[in-house]
Amino acid sequence: MTRNDNEFQDGTASGSGTTTTDKFVFPRWTNRLREISAVAALGGLVYAVVLVYGVFSPETSAMGYAPTQPVSYSHALHVGAMGIDCRYCHTSVETTAKANIPPTSTCMNCHSHVRTESPKLELVRKSAETGEPIPWVRVHDLPDFVYFNHAGHIQSGVGCVSCHGRIDRMEVVAQDKPLTMGWCLGCHRNPEPNLRPKEFVTDMTWQPPNGEDPADLGARLMKEHGIAPSTDCATCHR
């Protein structure tokens, strides 16, 4: 716009005395304004969709949640390096809906004799002495209107690793899977690749023997044990 003003001042307008000096003329590029704004609007819309999806998708917001725990317990050391079975501590996982957080006494099974002076275990020792629970922070937390049963899954041969990822490599436990309804249903509709013989559920690296396709083995296990995951609403929303 300023350029047009200048043109009038410097050139055509001088001394002619016409009354057109304050007439505004759109510059030539504005002829394409309609196309430009259409492209911009379309781009903006696509951008908004990508942004909303990106921000709200559980892969962004929920996965990778790794809160700082009151005691810096390392699964990488206890499970990964030492090979202690999940069920040594999470004793109720095979028989109840909830995989329990172990009581302090389980820690003290070993730590009343091993690493008894470690400052990292200060809170554990205090808890054992006073009976005050350790305020562990929950990592995997489904909405309260969802029912999930650990025992049912373990007894069907769904490995821990299928939902929790490689816990044996985690210094700090992080949520590894989205844990959304769509993700649950994905497996309930197509469970074969996630099934294994029951005795290997806690094995983090288990693969079917002889290079068999996990889906083939899973299909066989489903038939053998009558595994038929439900997709009824009321299975989880009860």
Partner: peptide
Amino acid sequence: IGCIYRARHSVKGQPR
């Protein structure tokens, strides 16, 4: 977009 990419590929201390 960069922030989202970072959030998807890192661990975080805050719940969603």
